[in-house]
């Protein structure tokens, strides 16, 4: 698949300079890219731990990434991307080219350099 556009860079504005960060590459395809400025590939940086209610924190996982993408990168029709705290059924997720169902799905803890791919299966045959 052609990937002609350059990556766009985003980072979490809450990120302080000293906190460990997780740089990631996120890719959208199968029509999902249309919801994300029609851009397939994005480079983002997330903090390594994130708030988890009651003042506690948790290591940054895909569930957090999905929410972050919805809040920061998604441009339209959020209901086509998320369903509750996860992706809408029919969207496949790959972690470093492996089905996220093998990786703990939303609980997968992100590591620097991870490549997360979201593919919609819902668009035409």
């Amino acid at each position: 698949m052609p990937d002609s556009q350059p990556d766009s860079s985003h980072s979490d504005s809450n990120l302080s300079q000293n906190e460990p960060k997780i740089p990631l590459r996120v890719e959208f395809s199968g029509g999902l890219e249309l919801l994300f400025s029609n851009q397939r590939s994005h480079r983002i940086t997330l903090p390594s731990t994130v708030p988890h209610g009651d003042g506690t924190t948790k290591p940054t996982d895909i569930t957090y990434l999905i929410d972050w993408l919805r809040r920061n990168l998604l441009k339209e029709r959020a209901e086509l991307f998320t369903d509750g705290a996860t992706v809408r059924p029919g969207i496949l997720v790959l972690v470093n080219d492996s089905d996220w169902e093998l990786e703990g799905e939303g609980d997968y803890q992100l590591r620097p350099g991870d490549e997360i791919v979201f593919i919609s299966t819902l668009h035409g045959g």
């Binding site: 698949m1 052609p2 395809s29 199968g30 029509g31 249309l34 919609s120 668009h123 035409g124």
Partner: peptide
């Protein structure tokens, strides 16, 4: 890496 089109 098949080349397909995916716009609704």
């Amino acid at each position: 890496r098949l080349d397909y089109f995916s716009t609704e």
